[in-house]
């Protein structure tokens, strides 16, 4: 008797510090397709997992922010290369998560790859746009340049599980910051798979950390964390945004407030410049 081969299912875990731990809490939650069918049990990250992710991101910050911009551009471009090779897998996952047609899901994945390429190119150009040589009224060399703000936590858009995710994470890391991203609560599987792509690319462990679970549970821990420098509220539920922004004031995180975004449109520079600090260096001129 011949039987159809039984599929080998994937265990979807967190991506923290370059590794794939389960939630320390041992919890998971069932992820369903838009059509209603069971897809997988995803890890349900705890507040402790969120703190661990921040520690990993902080640890990775000196190395990543100290890398040359050219290097960061190449590393992100390589992520695009790897994603390109796994378009079919991601199209299936996006299709299940967002209920798209096969064609539309493929287009979303293509756009996500192209978005990565677009941001990769910015690595060694953004400070040429944002920086300045300042003509001060005195014998001083005076130069303003952009530097990463530090550890940035992002709540990925709920409705756009891959393109939205990449649209918030890429500008954070291409500018030299390190990221903790809370994946779309309802469509977390593409985010976990993206972690697998990152793990096999040249992105150092800890530069991007992916948490899955309940946004309302993870987000307050990230917003209040005193070693986090920035907070992207793109995927914050409306009623939670104010509370999170308030929590972020404890150490004056740079907050990107939620707004209606068309993730398919070409991004402006806001998401890049929001995670940059301007440093101005003076030096006397003389013989």
């Amino acid at each position: 008797m011949s039987t159809e081969r039984l599929a080998v299912r994937k265990t979807y875990k967190l991506y923290v510090g370059g590794g794939f731990p389960r939630s320390e809490s041992g919890r998971s939650y069932p992820v369903t397709a838009v059509s209603g069918g069971f897809l997988a049990n995803a890890a349900r990250a705890s507040r402790k997992d969120a703190r661990d992710a921040v520690v990993a991101a902080r640890k990775a910050f000196p190395g990543w922010s100290g890398a040359t911009a050219y290097n960061r551009g190449q590393v992100l471009y390589r992520v695009a290369e790897l994603l390109e090779g796994r378009r079919a897998q991601f199209a299936d996952e996006v299709r299940a998560a967002e209920g798209l047609t096969r064609k539309d899901a493929a287009a979303v994945v293509d756009a996500a790859v192209d978005r990565l390429v677009w941001y990769a190119g910015w690595a060694d150009k953004i400070t040429q746009i944002t920086g300045a040589a300042n003509p001060v009224a005195g014998p001083y060399f005076n130069l303003s340049t952009s530097e990463p703000t530090g550890v940035v936590c992002a709540l990925a858009p709920r409705e756009s599980s891959l393109l939205g995710l990449i649209s918030v994470v890429a500008p954070v890391v291409i500018t030299g910051n390190t990221a903790v991203v809370a994946a779309s609560e309802t469509g977390p599987l593409p985010a976990v798979s993206l972690g697998e792509v990152l793990a096999t690319s040249d992105v150092p462990g800890g530069v991007v950390n992916v948490l899955t679970g309940r946004t309302a549970e993870i987000a307050p821990a990230l917003a209040a964390h005193m070693d986090v420098n920035g907070l992207d509220l793109a995927g914050a539920p409306g009623d939670l945004a104010r509370e999170l922004e308030t929590a972020a004031t404890h150490n004056l995180k740079r907050v990107l407030r939620p707004c209606a975004e068309d993730w398919a449109a070409e991004p402006g520079l806001t998401r890049l410049t929001h995670w940059l600090e301007t440093k101005t260096v003076w030096h006397p001129v003389g013989t």
Binding site: G138, Y140, N251, T280, V281, W282, H283, P284
Partner: peptide, 22 residues
């Protein structure tokens, strides 16, 4: 946000001023 090398407390309208962190 501002680093003065071999000088200190210089200000100029053409020069951005402001901080990191808190």
């Amino acid at each position: 946000g501002v680093v003065w090398t071999n000088t200190y407390n210089r200000f100029d309208p053409a020069s951005p001023f402001g901080g990191y962190k808190e």
